[in-house]
Design a protein around this nucleic acid. Structure first.
Lengths: 205, 205
DNA sequence: TTCTAAAATTGAGTCAATTCTGTTTTTGTG
DNA sequence: CACAAAAACAGAATTGACTCAATTTTAGAA
């Protein structure tokens, strides 16, 4: 049977993640001591390190859950985009931004981003890079879809536009999480203003 | 006299920075122990923490030196840009990128970027945000200059274009320092390809 | 059921950043 | 030239992430 051991393992994974997520929210990333996570998850410190390479990887697991939800929500927009380039971009980006603080606080995002640049080769660092790539591709897919529909000129460099847009969104999002007082509506407005330039450049006349 | 104390202070600052810069390069950021920096700078551990709030701030001081050099070098291009929008952008961005690894290794950049997102309110975090803003403004200034010369349409949103370009450059640079095997020529080529879209959008016909 | 190898768990111990408190140096005043 | 207050220094003590050797649990063969 692959039963007992596998079940216990999955259960411990879940308990660790839940305990960590709760403590990260309550006490912040640094404030959540490994010992406290271990106690709350009812495992020992050593066990946590058997499941995750380091504290950052625990946060990484939580971030992946969130970003994958965002990607999923984005699929709907790519399949059925609003009939206008500006609105299409705004809708997709809006989904990214509105979902982003569902499970993760700004402080958790800051930590996650920091770890992913600090240790790009760690499991989490690579996963994070992969998620960024998936998001970029989703934007590129939207551009391609808009080309099919005839809303975007077919002679533009789609992938390059996708990268440009994602990089800008990502950087704006980084600045957003760096300032606790920054608000979502202002972020979206700034992005619309920036994207307007691209919309006129790539839209059919 | 405000002499002795101030002179010793400046001297200690310099010794700490020099020791840290040398050790960061040799051993990497994590590998450079505070104790070793203290020994090499001929001060005690406590004194280092009297001068800098934490290890990250020491790195921050070094990064500021580098970025300020880059900004300085950029001024020349803004004052006298090449007579072509694509080349002007490429020249300014080229200066940024080529200077970037002069004093700082990729590993040091990664750490610096990580710390600036992790602790946006620390002295270094704020300084880093300020440097980013200065770079954005320099790009916007170049756009404005190109508008004066008549190379860029005057009906476009200059500041928004500046932000868009800088955010993209910055994000590409982050990805560049995250991969040790990434090379400068490829980075610059990718940026040219992305900027081409904007160049056609904002250039006069 | 009993036994053995493999897998998983445990928590005391290690290591390095940061803090804290007592000591020394500098300054400026009488 | 003392001397007291302020500033700076020193390094031992603290703290918390992470390691590792010893122990416990599980799987499955006999």
């Amino acid at each position: 049977m692959s039963g007992l051991r596998a079940r216990q393992k999955a259960d411990r994974h879940r308990r660790i993640i839940e305990a960590a997520a709760a403590l990260f929210r309550e006490a912040g990333y640094e404030g959540a001591k490994i010992e406290a996570i271990a106690t709350q998850a009812e495992v020992s410190i050593g066990t946590i390190y058997n499941y995750y390479q380091n504290k950052g990887d625990i946060l990484g697991a939580i971030v992946s859950l969130e970003v994958n939800e965002v990607l999923n929500a984005g699929r709907g927009v790519v399949a059925n985009p609003p009939a206008n380039v500006g609105d299409a971009l705004d809708t997709l980006i809006g989904i990214y931004i509105e979902h982003s603080l569902h499970y993760l606080s700004k402080e958790m995002w800051r930590q996650a981003m920091a770890i992913s640049t600090q240790q790009p080769d760690s499991p989490f660092g690579q996963a994070y890079t992969g998620l960024d790539r998936d998001l970029t591709e989703q934007i590129s897919a939207l551009i391609a879809r808009l080309q099919e529909i005839g809303l975007v000129r077919t002679d533009i460099d789609g992938p390059a536009v996708g990268e440009l847009i994602f990089n800008n969104v990502n950087m704006m999002f980084i600045e957003f999480v760096k300032r606790d007082e920054a608000r979502i509506p202002e972020l979206r407005a700034a992005l619309r203003r920036q994207n307007r330039i691209l919309v006129t450049a790539i839209g059919v006349d």
